[in-house]
Amino acid sequence: MTDGLSLEGVRIALRGVPLVSLDVRIAPGEVLTIMGPSGSGKSTLLSLLVGACPPEFETRGRVLLGGRDLAGLGPRERRIGLLFQDDLLFPHMSVGANLAFALPPSLKGRRARRRAVEAALEDAELASFADRDPATLSGGQRSRVALMRTLLGEPQALLLDEPFSRLDANLRESLRGFVFDRIRARGIPALLVTHDAEDAAAAGGRVVDPLGRGAGTQAKAASLS
């Protein structure tokens, strides 16, 4: 099996203290959730996966995406999308320009690119938002634009670092559906980092902690507290 995102013996330690220890394969369309206390190394794992791990950490293991070993590749070459807690839309660009930034250069022609951007906006129920200033959008709208921007880069895997934690409960629920639907539709492996057990439940996949221990019970405990 070479499909999906495989973490083979991935170990991260900080000054000798193990933070992350994972052996796992995320199948296309699957969402693996990682839950763990603050400071347990979740964000560090994501930075390792995109190829931007700070040199302070000791790392081992292999990461394979669709059978391709990612060792030695930087964030640009890995084709892994990353979605943060903040939307990080570029504030000096319009909504449309933000999306166009992510379109691969292989899509040529102004009109074709414009059409791709508009199609993405329609998909996000944001048709006619192309010329808007991102700062004038609501939190939920911004999050949707940020996801569409990430997807327009045609990533072969998606990492989500607490993407819903800044939103209120209602928005959170509708956005979860929006995000997970698109991941399944694209059939790409995804890795979700969260503190929220409901996120994990909605993702519908396995739940582990950074040390690879099944955290099904942990998720329940967290939802009770």
Binding site: G74, I80, G81, G153
Partner: peptide, 12 residues
């Protein structure tokens, strides 16, 4: 993080 966001979108 803006830099990382741009890099994961393929920007050099």
């Amino acid at each position: 993080r803006y830099g990382l966001a741009a890099a994961t979108l393929g920007a050099g």
